[in-house]
């Protein structure tokens, strides 16, 4: 059983890596050659939203200016102390001019540039922008996974899912970040900068994918033993696909009761997991009602496959040391039933 369970973490399979359709705006930027071939599904350098693009452009501007300042400063040092060794010293006046130009004027220009761009871009990226944001999602940081609660206009929860955030393309979704344990930080670099989920606070983050695609994000605030493997996926899809997805997520489990459900309940999985429409209503772990619809398990650590599911259940801490779920080693037949059932939770 164990050998089947032995899982490989990662994102090797091609269908997991959806190529960005966004024209690489940055390829024209200076120094892009440094990074060619490194575009990723979790990278601030491959913006898939207006917010991330603005910041990426800002990064390139700042980087280019920094290189320029660096070269000038080091150049002056090299020339002054090296090449002109023992020749003419700077007069008091030229020295003063040098210090004022390099040490006062240049920084002041830099400060103004940083300030103006920072406020302008900050305003853009942190603001609601278009009035009447349609979609509000509560993103709850857990140790060490994410709970996602889709709300309707009245603020009632429509659907609960985990670790896979679906968003309609071209719409600005409002993410409300919560935590009832330690501080986490929600970071999907292709879409938006990060914001912390802090107990006692309700921080807000806007996400607005410009293109269809699948990206990965990761918790960015150190939150304990498995901060490392606290990832999540973001899926941006057209509005109608999104609606269909949300409707499914809102429904009870679609799988008919099967022997696997009894195994699930007998093993005590229901003490921690909810499968809507069954007696399983635990709150400690991710909602599994539509587990099979998700691309990954264990917080974007493993692709969602039968083998990985089996590995996760039977050898949880090999996959994710410290995860707050015990391993279970059921009878082989029971495990098959259980996996059949879990795979039917579309």
């Amino acid at each position: 059983m164990r050998s089947e369970g032995k899982a490989k973490r990662g994102f090797g399979s091609p269908q997991e890596r959806v190529r960005l359709r966004l024209l690489r705006l940055l390829s024209s930027a200076p120094f892009a050659f440094l990074l060619s071939g490194c575009q990723g599904i979790q990278s601030a350098l491959d913006p898939a939203s207006r917010d991330a693009r603005l910041v990426a452009e800002l990064s390139w501007w700042m980087f280019t200016s920094a290189v320029f300042i660096y070269i000038v400063t080091i150049g002056l040092l090299a020339v002054g102390a090296g090449l002109f060794r023992g020749r003419k010293r700077l007069s008091f006046r030229s020295s003063t001019t040098l210090v004022i130009l390099g040490g006062v004027c240049a920084p002041i220009i830099a400060i103004i540039a940083i300030g103006v761009s920072g406020v302008a871009i900050g305003d853009e990226t942190e603001g609601a922008r278009e009035a009447g944001t349609a979609l509000t999602i509560e993103v709850v940081g857990k140790q060490w996974w994410w709970e996602l609660r889709y709300l309707d206009e009245a603020g009632e929860v429509i659907a609960v899912t985990a670790n896979e955030l679906h968003l309609p393309v071209g719409e600005r979704a409002r993410l409300e970040l919560l935590s009832d344990n330690v501080i986490h930080s929600f970071w999907a670099p292709n879409l938006q900068g990060k914001t912390d989920a802090i107990p006692g606070r309700r921080n807000v983050l806007f996400a607005e994918p410009a293109v269809e695609g699948v990206w990965r994000g990761q918790c960015a605030e150190f939150c304990g033993k498995q901060h490392t493997l606290m990832g999540f996926m973001v899926v941006a899809e057209p509005r109608d696909e999104f609606n269909a997805w949300l409707e499914r997520q809102a429904s009870d489990a679609l799988a008919p009761p099967a022997p696997g459900l009894d195994v699930f309940l007998d093993l005590g999985c229901g003490g921690c997991h909810t499968i809507r429409g069954t007696p399983a209503d635990g709150q400690k772990g991710p909602d599994l009602t539509h587990l099979a619809s998700r691309r990954t398990i264990a917080a974007a650590t493993l692709p969602n496959s039968r083998g990985n599911l089996g590995g996760w259940i039977t050898d949880t801490h090999e996959v994710k040391p410290g995860a707050l779920m015990p391993s279970f080693i059921p009878e082989p037949q029971d495990l098959h039933d259980l996996l059949d059932y879990l795979e039917a939770l579309h």
Binding site: R89, L90, L98, V99, G102, I114
Partner: peptide, 21 residues
């Protein structure tokens, strides 16, 4: 970002001191 001013002043004072020495 304002800290860049005193830092820059120092850097350039050192450069001026070294210049041509």
């Amino acid at each position: 970002s304002m800290i860049a001013i005193p830092s820059g002043v120092q850097v350039y004072c050192w450069i001026a001191t070294l210049w041509g020495g």
